[in-house]
Every structure is written in C-alpha cells, then in structure tokens.
Nucleic acid binder design. Structure first.
Lengths: 142, 142
DNA sequence: TAGATTCGTAACCTCGGTAGTTGCAGTTCG
DNA sequence: CGAACTGCAACTACCGAGGTTACGAATCTA
C-alpha cells in the first residue's frame, strides 16, 4: 500500500466497537483510543458506513455502532472498504516499442495472482479474531 | 504500495535487458521503452545494481547489462530491491488505552501472514517468465 | 422551545514521497 | 582531446494523507 494508515485505523475502530455492540460510541471517544483527530475517525467511519459495517447516529448520545456481527466482517472487507484497491501502480510504457507494448499484458498475467494470494489471506480473518487477541477475557464465557 | 511505479518499471527494464544479455544498453535507450526520463531509469537501475542484478559501465559504449540469468531473478527479488518493504503502514494507537495497547500485537498476528502470502506468489515468478510473455519467439528455439 | 451534543462534510495547511529535469564530475573509447 | 556514457546531487512540481477549523443538520433533554 505504500500507503496509508487508514486500514489499521479502521480495524482498530471496529474492534473497539465490537466490545460494546449495543452502544453508540462517539467519534470523540474513538479518537482517544486510536490517538488521532475525531474528524479523521469520522472520515474512516464514513467508508465503513458506506460499506454497511457500521451505523451512525447524530445528536446527543449519538455516535457509531456495528451494523453486523464482528464475526461477519473480514479484514478483506475492511481493506476493500477503506483501501485504494490496487496493490501495484503501473508505469506508462511506450506502446510504440515492441517490448513496451506487451509489458502491461505480461504483468497482468502475474501480479493479480499475488494480489489474490494477499486477499485470500485477509479474507480468512474476521474482526472478531482480532478482538480475541486484544481482549481474550471478553470471550471467556462464550 | 500507495505507492510508486518503480517496481513495474524495474521489471520492464530487466525484461528488456534479458533480450540482449551480452550488450550494455544505455539508460537513454531504456528510457525510450519505459517512456520516461533517463535519470529516472538510472535511479531504478541504481537499486538493481546494489542488489546485484545488473552491472553498469560508464564511458562510450557503456550502459547496463544483466549480472545474472533472468531465470534466477524473481519478482520478489525485484520488489524487495526497489520497494519500500512494508505492505501495511501502522497508525499510532494510544498505549494508555487498554484496547489501543494491544492492537499492534493483534495486528502483528495476522497482517504478516497476508504479506507472506503475497511474497510467496511473487517469489514463484522469474523475470524470464515475464519475458516469455513479452516475446515468445525469443525462446522458441530453447 | 432553547441549548447542548454529535455527526457529516467542506475547506485549508502541512508534510513526505515520487517523477521529472538540469547540471556536473568521473570514466571510457576512438 | 572530445564524444558518449554513468552516478549523483539539487531543485521543482505534484499528489495523497493526516491534522485542523468551521459550519449546517440532526437529536436529545431540561
């Protein structure tokens, strides 16, 4: 990803919400845990809301809560919701050159395979799995 | 990778060099195929040289050539030589918060697995494999 | 109803990384 | 010596991300 810290931040937020699934948590509280600005949290939450993972509510006692079970949200879901999609950025080869002309197709033969391997791995982990590592006692009685 | 186009550019250069393994090719010619500035090419080549994949020679009739067989250079080798290493960038959770304190370790449990799956896939492809897709006839007699 | 609280979003600044460009010293060959 | 290269430093332009402020809209409570 070169990239941005939005994905770990989104996972952090979802894990935090998973410990109080019935309550609306304010972006101000969340910004405390993730150690950043409330607006930055709301920007990430906006992506998660568009993806249907959380519901937010304005007004006093408003905030954010999970819209589905933590067990049903995979890290790949989150990655796609907040990420930029492409793992590789292409350059712009010279199409007039016989080599340059065929480079894009040749790379398209191999790079997506690596991307899919990456995504399969993320798809096998749910937010709940991360939450279990963070606070094992929360799941002790289940 | 959020990223940069240095990796596809490096692969492009190595594939081009693989078709004339005995000749020194100037960064000026290479900049034609990859469709960019000679200095940008030399910057990428500098990483490849430090990694031991190419040898460059100054002076008239100078340039760059492969230092090892295209079959012996994997896409993972190239990725590591020109890339930034980390696929994920961490945020900075609040260590004073019981959740924030444990998030890094929890993520470290799962994200490296995805990274390794990605790398294993790249490790299985060599520059020569890409070159075969680009110019099959070059390998027809082999 | 008034006021407090919270969200959503736009606007702006800053910072870091990348590509593109120029310039120049050093190397090699004819 | 001069031409054709590399290697590298320096500078600019640009883009995306994070941080911040601001404001309208929604919601609850006194």
């Amino acid at each position: 990803m070169g990239q941005s810290s939005r994905f770990p931040l989104a996972v952090h937020v979802l894990v935090a919400l998973s410990f109080r699934p019935k309550d609306f948590i304010s972006s101000d509280s969340l910004s405390g845990t993730v150690h950043t600005n409330p607006v930055v949290v709301r920007r990430v939450v906006a992506s998660l809301r568009r993806a249907g993972f959380v519901i937010s509510q304005p007004g006093v006692a408003g905030g954010v809560r999970l819209a589905k079970l933590a067990r049903r949200i995979s890290l790949l879901d989150v990655y796609r919701a907040v990420g930029r999609g492409e793992l590789f950025r292409m350059h712009n080869p010279n199409r007039a050159c016989p080599i340059g002309k065929r480079i894009p197709a040749a790379l398209a033969e191999f790079l997506p395979k690596a991307e899919r391997a990456f995504e399969r791995s993320l798809a096998g982990v749910a937010i709940e799995d991360v939450a279990r590592k963070v606070w094992p006692a929360f799941f002790a009685t289940k």
